[in-house]
Design a binder for these strands. Structure first.
Length: 451
DNA sequence: GCATGATCATGC
DNA sequence: GCATGATCATGC
């Protein structure tokens, strides 16, 4: 059968893909309802069959092997402020723990299949048949060289966990752009064996983080929000196989360890209002050489920059809060797919200051941190489950306290006591959220380098 | 000195 | 007006 495009030529394929831009499959193909409408991935399969005229496959090579292109059909949505963002992460191929560990980067299943993506973003609609969804952005995505260095390092982190017999301890927070997300069995229910440990590990697939997709979308749309974002890595040569992004960032702070915020400001030769509430975060941005409000790499990797001030006994002055939860929504969640768990799987960048004996603040240390998978599925899980149980038992007024759990607790988090939310039992109660305990944070950051 | 409850400041 | 991150106040 003659194809309506040249399957050896990526540009021809991209051009042909774009004929679906701002259209639906039904408009183009008068599609019947033959295919499974609701199934996940059904639209992708329909695009392969109806539009590209090939049978969906399950091979290790890209979908268009001769052109070296992997086709991905993935949803976007519009936020209340009109911004267009990815609806979810982009799930790529499943990782075969038994095989992947023996591969080099070049031979890896990720690189073999996904080195060049043909992305077709469609606008998500809750109740629409797959034939009635509109394609809004279509194009080939070539990872910028700088991104590729970070992705390559991400891949090493994932594979090293397998090599260390820790496939069961992989967390999306371990990596920056390339994640290893759970796949199958209701997300986290499908277990596989791993080569260097007898522990079963959740089946995982490579994925591109949602925030990484957001930047692809913004880039293609030339969104204004890109003006607020500036990269730390100005030049590809800033990174190498020997120097990861994290190391580069830590090096940028190294000259200022032991210095006061004022001294750092002076040394940088910048003017920042020391009374502004965002003084510390602005100072960190300037140390990183970023003049705008946001760091590109942090945005794409969904890394939260947090300033922590340690008291003289190394205890952080404050606990770390998360957004409040809605009582009626949290009881409908499962732990594994809970909002709280998704917050905990993110990476943090801690800029840690410490009060010295005279009560003066000095930069003590910077570090990237994400909550170890073990802690997430033990301490945090217990607190979350107890919280749901109490709310369900009409005891939303008595949720896990700080002394009850080593890592986290629940406490009010509204504008004031009158800022309330309705419980499943119809009672109005002050808004609450999960918090990470200062003591737990202390133990996570404690190191001989702080004294 | 810490746990707990409460509120502030900022930005959208 | 509200969400969110940051911080304060009180009492044990």
């Amino acid at each position: 059968m003659t194809l309506p495009y040249d399957d050896e030529d990526p540009i021809s394929i991209e051009k042909y893909a774009r004929t679906l831009l701002n259209r639906t499959l039904r408009e183009v193909y008068q599609a019947s309802q033959t295919y499974n409408m609701g199934a996940r991935g059904a639209l992708g399969q329909a695009v392969e069959k109806l539009h590209f005229k090939y049978q969906p496959n399950n091979i290790a090579a890209p979908d268009f092997p001769k052109a070296g292109l992997e086709l991905k059909v993935t949803p976007i949505k519009t936020l209340k402020n009109g911004e267009l963002v990815a609806k979810e992460r982009l799930v790529l191929n499943i990782i075969d723990f038994m095989v992947e560990h023996s591969k080099s980067w070049e031979e890896s299943s990720f690189w073999q299949k996904n080195k060049r993506l043909l992305l077709m973003f469609y606008l998500h609609h809750d109740n629409a048949a797959i034939y009635d969804l509109y394609f809004r952005l279509i194009g080939i995505w070539d990872y910028p060289e700088k991104d590729l260095l970070i992705i390559k390092n991400d891949w090493k982190i994932i594979v090293n966990k397998i090599r260390n017999g820790e496939a069961h301890l992989i967390s999306e927070g371990d990596t920056m752009y390339l994640g290893a997300c759970t796949k199958g069995g209701g997300h986290g229910g499908d277990f596989r064996s791993q080569p260097f440990s007898s522990e079963l590990a959740k089946q995982r697939a490579y994925s591109l983080k949602k925030k990484y997709l957001d930047i692809i979308i913004s880039t293609w749309r030339k969104d204004k929000r890109l003006n607020d974002i500036e990269p730390i890595v100005k030049n590809v040569k800033d990174l190498s196989n020997e120097k990861s992004f994290e190391q580069l960032v830590i090096e940028k702070f190294a000259p200022y360890i032991g210095k006061s915020p004022t001294e750092i400001t002076k040394a940088l030769g910048v003017k920042i209002n020391p009374n502004a509430k965002n003084f510390f975060s602005t100072l960190s941005l300037r140390v990183l050489g970023v003049k705008t409000k946001k760091v590109e790499e942090f945005e794409k990797a969904d890394i939260t920059l947090k300033t922590i001030r340690l008291k003289h006994n190394n205890m952080p002055k404050e606990d770390i809060s998360f957004p409040y939860f809605k009582y009626k929504e949290i009881v409908e969640e499962t732990w594994y797919e809970s909002t709280f768990r998704s917050y905990l799987e993110k990476k943090f960048f801690f800029v840690i200051y410490k009060f010295n004996k005279k009560g003066e603040l000095r930069l003590a240390k910077v570090m990237f941190w994400n909550m170890p998978a073990r802690d997430i599925d033990s301490y945090a899980k217990l607190v979350w489950e107890r919280t749901v149980e109490q709310i369900n038992n009409n005891k939303a007024g008595d949720l896990p306290k700080k002394r009850e759990n080593y890592a986290c607790h629940v406490r009010p988090h509204g504008r004031n006591a009158k800022d309330t939310d309705e419980t499943p039992n119809g009672v109005m109660l002050v808004k609450k959220s999960f918090w990470l305990n200062s003591k737990y944070i202390r133990d996570q950051i404690l190191d001989k380098s702080i004294d």
